[in-house]
Design a protein around this nucleic acid. Sequence first.
DNA 1: ATACATACC
DNA 2: TACTGGTATGTAT
Length: 872
Amino acid sequence: MENEVKVTNTEGFLSRMALNDNKAGMEGLDREKINKIIMESSKGSRFYENELKREQQVNQRIEKMMLQKAQITEQQLKKAQAQVERMAAELEKGRDLSRWIVHVDMDAFYAAVEMRDCPELKDKPMAVGSMSMLTTSNYHARKYGVRAAMPGFIAKKLCPNLVIVPTNFDKYRAVSGEVREIFADYDPHFQPMSLDEAYLDFTDHLEQRQSWPESSRTHNYHANNSASGKKETLEPKDFSPVLFEDSPSSSPDSEGVNTTGVVFGKSVEEAVREMRFRIEQKTMLTASAGIAPNTMLAKVCSDKNKPNGQYRLPPTREAVMDFVQNLPVRKVCGIGKVSEKMLSALGVSSCSDLSQQMGLLSLMFSETAWHHFMQVSLGLGSTHIPRHEERKSMSTERTFKELNTAEKQLTLCRELCEDLAADMKKENLKGKTVTLKLKNVNFEVKSRALTVPYAVASVDEIFAVAKDLLQTEIDNESPQPLRLRLMGVRISAFVSSDDKKPLQKSILGFLQPGNADSGSTQGINQKLEKENPSDHSLFTPLPARPPLKQNFQRQEDISVWNKQRGLEESQASDEPKKSFFQRAHAERLKIQAASANTQGEGQEENAADITSTGPPAHKLEESPTKAHERSSTASDPSENDHASPVEAHASTSSCGGKASESLTCPVCFKRVETSDLNVFNTHIDKCLYDSSSKPNPCTVSDSDSDMDSQRNPKECEVVDKSSGECVIVEVLASSRDAPRDEQHRITTDSNQTALLIDSENKTVTSQQSLSCNDKGPVLICPVCHLTQDSDDLIIFNHHVDLCLNQEVLRELRGRTSSPMNPPSVPNIKARGRGRLLTTQGKKAKRRDTPSSPPSKKAKGVGPLNTIDKFFR
DNA sequence: ATACATACC
DNA sequence: TACTGGTATGTAT
């Protein structure tokens, strides 16, 4: 029975290792032979063993899926089928064929650039990358089965004459910039997907183009440069308008068209051809393009006539459906190796199979997955080019020869943090979640994450967290050492890209008088809400989470704080669920706490009782979350360096055009009847004037010193161009990196753990803040450290809030306007990236109400806008 | 929130 | 000798 699965391995090879001939330029290869070489090169390696393991995992998933399938009754299937059909009908109603979406893709980009710049490479099979990994290969090399993502040493076995050229990203970036300038002429809002690829919406351009004179559609030849002998040589006749359907103007040349000019027509195809022509003239590189009514189809189309070709799919339902029928599912963006295999096990390999099996698929796959399948089977996709979204994470990782001492690992970890911090700085980012990624010498990948209550950005801050995560892993493994081949550090959960005060938006949100949502910005509010759902409780007197998170530097602080406020059961339960962070520092914490907290724990319980018996009234009932702050997108430096950042500016008092009439003072909690921020600030100043507070002492101390830095051998390849052969040279990167290393050594041993120490001190103080004497509790503010006169907890909390907020309020006073972006449509991603998959374990809940669409869950993350429409 | 897997370039 | 690096997202827990 379980053998059924293995049938999917075509020739007995691991499907995940075998040649992927899905891409252009790989037709008619001797797959058998190529796979044999690949296998022979890999067999027995740790990499191979790991691939084997993963393959088996996938097979198990498939087996499970098959078991599930076997239990589906005829009736269930019928019912599912019916629902799928209803949904298809709904989706059909939303079909939009009115846009001209174009996907442009440079041909073998990196390789083409290198060939352009080194003519000797032109006739040779070559690839860009290293002996370890190739990023691109030229078409000549593809005939041997050499392709991107293949290690160079295997490629060499497939094609001993292969020339491997090291990557030169700066060059590719520069060329990419040139190409993007041309893209912008056709769609200023085009979306780059990588250096060599972009989606464009030609619709508007075409509308204008209809009234353009010939001169505007004429483009000159520059050099006789035809970058490569591809099939469409760019002769003037190839671009003659008469060759194309709706280009009426075969009219006499007018308006100064010089002899070497090429006139392009008014049709989409002509416009796209023109764009490609201009790209080639400007860069001596060719591009391919797909023209279709949506992004999903355009992407597939751009591959159809690659290289140096284009394909237009007519915007009719019939043409689309025909096109989709014969499309292998693997060609669709978002359906990768694993999905392909799983679908294949269900007898689905083309999109027509997809539509036929939709009922079954809806029972076997997750909602997200089968909705995507459904759309694909109907030829639906995103009909607009989504604005590039803000980045969600930033990371850096490195592969190296085995590292197996804690010292070296920690050193490397710090280096990664340095790199990451530098990158973060470039984009002015701060994030709350730090993730450490480890891959051992057996290629097993592990990730460990920790979210801290404040946003971090500096080397020391990031390293403080990453080091902890790493140390925990080292400790867990000991006495065995971790044997690593890769380490990476990632930051996510960004607070805001142009505003480093983590809770600025919450402050601003607070200042907005509560209620009245202007419809146009609802999505943004929802987004913020999702990002930081508890921010609106910021100034809520009691009980509440600590108001200003950046003033709490460790989770322990939060715990203590919550205990004081009698919340230990709900939020602060640090006992049952200790984080890595907490565990790792428990020891140190205990030592410090023991000396400072000799009275024992009784007081804390006591305090909790006090607070919980007398919950104070909330002065702020509804907490406005009107922080209309979305940072401008500085976006990915490499991919979007051209993108013009949107300036973030708007006034606190204007929200979607609506002006506020009054603001609530965060100090006295009274309404101030003004919408003038200056007036309001004056009021706050006055309120603050009386309150006593002093700066929070910040102890900086040193602990873990840096260890010996060590050089990782790096390899690089050098092409010996005179011989045309690739000479691989191993080079130690020591000379290049040495100075930087010295620097780093100096900086590391100073105060990398300042943050932790500081926060521990604060923790200790916090624990002191509720002490008892004979008369009852004495309240000490954990921020200003002053004993409070009153024993009224409401007043005490009020005071603490005040202390915590001083800094931000001071900051606020310096501002007359607050950051806020123009309302933007909260949009849906068109990208088909990693998603889908997974048979759904529990499918019972759906299907209850067959005709009504699965209510929420679509929540805007649906891959394609049509889904959004459907669930509206 | 965390861990892991899939996907894309 | 040698199998990447960066980002996003989906699923399970």
